[in-house]
Structures are given as C-alpha cells and as structure tokens.
C-alpha cells in the first residue's frame, strides 16, 4: 500500500502537497481570509500556466526542460511592445500581440533548436546561458529601438521603461472575461479557458504524428532512428513550439499582472517554470500535460499562500519578501535535485 502511494504520487509531490496544505491551514488559523487565498491561487495558476506548458514539448523531444524560456518571453514582450506602439487595444490588441510575436518566436526557436542539436548532452546548461545572453542583449535593444508611444517611453531621455501598465490597452482583459464570484472566490474564467485551451492544444500535439515521433526520439533516440525518424528535425519543431508557448505565456502573464516588465525581468523566469513541471511529476526525460496542471497549482499555490502567512508571522518590514525568496528558491532547488529521478 505504502509503495503504491509512493509510486503513484511520488515523494516530491507528497512533500510539496503537505507543505502547501500545511501553510494554507496555518494561514486560515491565523485569520487570513480563505476566499482571498483561493482567489490568489487560481489567478497565479492561470498566469504562470502557459509558461510551464512550454516545458512539455522540449522535454518530450529529449532536449530537457526549456531553460532558455527567456528567449520565448522576449519575443512575446516584443509582440506586446509593437502592438502597443501601433495603438492596438482590447481583444484585438491581445491577439495582435500574439500574432506579432509568432514570427519572431518561430525564427528564434528554429535557431535555438539548431543550437541544441549541436550541443547534445549539455542542453540544460547551454540553454540556461542562451537565455541569460539573450536577456542581456535585449537590454541594449529595449533602449535603442525607436519606439515612440508615451506609455512605454521614459518621459525624459531614450528607451523603454522598466515597467509600464497595460490598463489603457488590454490589462486584465482575459481575467475579467466572463469572470464571476462564488463564495467570495473570484474566478477569472477567460484566463482559465485560455490556459486549459492551450493545454488541450499541446495535448493534441503530443498525440499527433509529429508529436508521437518527437516523443519516441526523446525517450529512446536509437529506437526512433531504427524506425527512420529524423530526430534532429523533431527537436527543432518541439523547441519552436516551446518558444512560441513562452511568447504566448508572457503575453497572458502580462495582461493578468496588468504590467509589462522589460530588461532583466525575464532573466530568472525559466526556473519557477522548470520547478513547477518537475514538482508536477515530470522528469528531464518525460513530461505530460497533467504534470503541468498539477505542478503549477502546487508551486504557485504554495507561493500564493506562503507570502501572506509570512507577512503575518514576520511583520518586520522587508523580511517577508526575503522569506518569499527563500521559499521560492527552496522549492526550485528541491525540484532540480529531482530532475533525473523519475518522480521518486
């Protein structure tokens, strides 16, 4: 019985789940509003979901978790910035941002995939630093690109601002679509529909012919080769898809956040996403859409409840922010130790 539970659920998920529930009930006992907590959990899940989903194709293709997620994020940010520059707002603005980012994401993803094919065996490290390098390079471009829109530019001098609001364009547009309240819990229907819709599309990809070949190439390259599969091509396709999901993910994230963050903001965004899918039960070799949903709920859920609880327990000034960092990086660290352990 004990073995069965261990094999079905896996120790990491058991530990994180109990931690999550523990902190949640601690919060309730401390008198924090439960409905608000649940609202936060659901919102964060929808916000981060697609970024975590971007891990599925890359893991399935055998290139491991997409540590170079920031490059997808940058193409998404580029889509947002261009859509705002040409004055798009509302739903058409959101869709415009996605459509504009697509060609960038496809091209960048293609070259990223080619890069990974050259460095087989060291994908994870190379990917991490590819992301870092891209973020740093873009810091220059955010300054020198000739954008003119008042909401995005520094009032004085050149370049785009670090952070600017989306409230006049498409901030919260998905969150508020068909949103309703039940028992005081705010349900961001549009956001959830988008997330689950994306999940379904990725699921369809894994069941398509290309997706099946990609999966086989990732699980056992020799097997795939003996069946005549062009593994390198599939790895490129999967990483293009992953990059596109990164771009769409940051657009959905930004509208939900209400602000766009440029410059160094994307630098570390791959790590929570990687940690989420690992906690969800994936390994560096094997990932499913269900791992995404479980993982993002647990990881973001834990962060969402840990912050107010930490505030309550340590009211002194800045300490809660530090505690949040400790918790978040602690979970990431723990998840990364499980990267090759088949979920046990």
């Amino acid at each position: 019985m004990k073995d069965l539970i261990m094999n079905k659920i896996g120790l990491p998920r058991l530990i994180i789940t109990s931690l999550f529930l523990g902190v949640f009930f601690l919060g309730a006992a401390l008198g924090l509003p439960v409905a608000q907590q649940i609202t936060d959990i659901i919102k964060r899940m929808g916000m981060y979901g697609i970024l975590v989903l971007a891990m599925v194709p890359s893991i399935q293709s055998g290139t491991g978790p997409n540590f170079a997620l920031p490059i997808g994020i940058i193409t998404g940010l580029l889509g947002i910035v261009i859509s705002l520059e040409i004055g798009m707002t509302g739903f058409s603005g959101l869709v415009g941002a996605v459509l504009i980012s697509l060609p960038f994401a496809v091209i960048v993803g293609y070259f990223y995939g080619r890069l990974l094919n050259v460095v087989k065996g060291a994908e994870m490290t190379i990917a991490t630093y590819t992301g870092f390098a891209a973020v740093s390079a873009m810091c220059i471009f955010w300054i020198i690109l000739p954008f003119q829109s008042g909401t995005m530019k520094w009032p004085l001098g050149k370049g785009l601002r670090n952070t600017f609001p989306l409230d006049n364009s498409y901030g919260l547009i998905l969150n508020d679509f068909l949103a309703f309240e039940i028992f005081g819990v705010h349900i961001p229907t549009g956001l959830l529909l988008t997330f689950f819709g994306a999940c379904f599309l990725v699921y369809l990809f894994t069941k398509s012919k290309v997706g099946t070949e990609t999966l086989a190439g990732g699980m056992n390259p020799n097997f795939a080769k003996a069946s005549g599969v062009n593994i390198d091509r599939n790895r490129i396709v999967a990483n293009i898809l992953s990059t596109v999901l990164g771009a769409v993910g940051i657009i959905v994230y930004s509208q939900s956040f209400g602000f766009v963050q440029l410059y160094l903001a994307p630098l570390m965004m791959a790590f929570p996403a990687v940690a989420s899918i690992l906690i969800g039960g994936a390994t560096a070799q094997r990932a499913k859409v269900s791992h995404v949903i479980i993982g993002v709920t647990l990881f973001q859920g834990l962060l969402a409840v840990a912050l107010p609880v930490a505030n309550e327990v340590f009211p002194e000034g800045n300490l809660s922010e530090i505690i949040r960092m400790v918790v978040q990086n602690g979970i990431i660290l723990y998840a990364l130790t499980k990267v090759n352990s088949n979920g046990k």
Binding site: K209, T212, E213, L215, A216, M219, N220, N222, F223, K225, A226, S227, G228, V229, Q285, R286
Partner: peptide, 22 residues
Amino acid sequence: RGVGLILDESIALNTVFTALKV
C-alpha cells in the same frame, strides 16, 4: 532494450510505432 523498445512507453505504442511513422 537499447534499440528495439521504448521501455517507458506502452506495448501499444511500441508495437505500432514503425508502421505509424513509415
């Protein structure tokens, strides 16, 4: 085990894979 099968996948997928691909 090294070339003939994907050990972590179902018998079904292992059986049909080559025909599906080719």
